[in-house]
Nucleic acid binder design. Structure first.
Lengths: 118, 118
DNA sequence: ATAACATATGAACACATGTTCATATGAAAG
DNA sequence: CTTTCATATGAACATGTGTTCATATGTTAT
């Protein structure tokens, strides 16, 4: 009968409507999901974790994490495209750092949440 | 020569060492990565987004998001296992809500970061 | 110019992931 | 007890993802 309710029985239609209305626009939700997914890989998370402490170049990141240069570069591209990291070119080497403080807060909040479980 | 540096040339060994030492324990990093990955799916992110506003049962979530009951249930299991959501049983129906305020902050920070890009 | 270095990129492959479909569990109603 | 309802779960399948390998680009040094 009601297509956007997808033929599922509903206990409280008013609540459902309210929930739908409070939802952020699809574009924003998808972008945030992409951002979380980018942080959802252990290696990429270690990358941003290291960059939270100091600026580092690709080869030092690879060395510190025991990853190949290629893998690091691919990972950094994902983070760069989502504006999670910025790069600075100094002749041959390229230094990466976090893009802004939001990322640091996201990280800090996340670790706080996780470290709460002993 | 130095195995845990993985045979990659290093520009500043002291920096690399410092970066390695500041890194959180692997267990914590992996758990946080799993948490971010769980939030990295648009449907699961919409689920937690709705639960941030109010407690909802499975069928209402499915209706509001236009997802199948099965898909919602599978998604909720992932979120439950990572302690992102809690459930409360009321006879037949099961109500879900966010597990704690950390999740709300994570969400808020994330949206703030994303919505900054017009 | 040529070699060495730092990084980026594309293709390919193995592996993870999300949904669907069918079915199971458990609780209320008839 | 049988049916209906709310949710959970397992298998299967298509799609997405991260790494590796090979190679390209651009920069400094010889």
């Amino acid at each position: 009968m009601n297509d956007d309710l997808c033929e599922v029985k509903v206990t409280d239609l008013a609540k459902v409507r309210r929930a739908q209305e409070e939802m952020k626009p699809a574009e924003v939700v998808i972008l945030l999901a992409e951002t979380f997914r980018a942080l959802g890989d252990p290696n990429r998370l270690r990358l941003v974790g290291m960059l939270a402490a100091q600026e580092l170049c690709v080869c030092d990141l690879a060395a510190a994490l025991g990853m190949s240069q290629s893998a690091v570069s691919h990972s950094l591209r994902v983070l760069r495209q989502l504006r999670l990291v910025r790069s600075r070119k100094a002749s041959k080497t390229i230094y990466y750092r976090l893009d802004d403080q939001h990322i640091e807060r996201l990280l800090a909040d996340g670790f706080e949440h996780v470290e709460e479980r002993v």
